Simulated scan of single mutants.
Amino acid sequence: MAEQLEVILRSIGSFCILLIGAKILGKQIIAKMTTYDFVAFISIGSIAANLAFNTSLKFYNLLISYAIMIAILFVAAYVSMKGITVRRFLAGNPTVVIENGKILEENMKKMRYTLDYLNQQLREKDIFEISEVLFAIVETNGALSVQKKPHFRHATKQDMGIFTTPESKLPIELIMDGHIVETNLKENNLTHNWLQVEIQKRGLSVKEVFYAVLATNGAVYIDTYKDHIESPIDKE
Rank of each mutant, 00 (worst) to 15 (best):
M176V: 09
I103C: 08
T183P: 01
T114V: 06
T95D: 11
N119K: 13
A22M: 12
T34R: 08
R202N: 09
G13T: 12
V206H: 02
E208N: 08
S11P: 03
A2D: 15
S131W: 03
Y225S: 05
H179D: 13
L63G: 04
G13D: 00
E167A: 10
L118R: 02
M108C: 05
T164I: 04
E124L: 15
N189F: 11
I24T: 07
L195I: 02
L170A: 15
V213F: 02
M33V: 12
D177P: 09
P171F: 03
K110L: 15
N50I: 07
A76C: 14
M160H: 00
S131V: 13
M81E: 13
I175P: 02
E124G: 15
Y36D: 03
S231M: 05
A215M: 15
S43K: 00
T85S: 08
S43H: 00
D126P: 08
L51E: 00
D37G: 10
G92H: 14
T85M: 06
L144Y: 11
H192P: 00
R123W: 08
S56C: 03
L134H: 11
D227R: 07
F38T: 11
G26S: 09
V206M: 10
L9E: 05
Y211R: 00
R10F: 01
E236W: 12
F53G: 14
D234Q: 12
V220L: 11
Y36Q: 01
Q147H: 14
G101A: 07
S168N: 07
L204K: 02
T224E: 05
M176Q: 05
P171C: 08
L170Q: 15
Q147T: 15
I222W: 04
L118C: 13
Q147G: 03
Y225W: 14
T55S: 11
N141W: 09
S56A: 08
W194S: 04
G92M: 14
V96G: 08
R153Q: 14
E208G: 09
L51R: 00
L195W: 01
K58Q: 12
A212D: 01
M111R: 09
A215T: 05
V7T: 12
L195V: 08
V209F: 04
E3F: 09
G161T: 09
K27V: 05
I20L: 06
F163W: 02
L134F: 13
E106C: 13
T224W: 01
D37T: 06
S43W: 01
D227G: 07
L190M: 14
L57N: 10
F89Y: 09
F59C: 07
K82L: 10
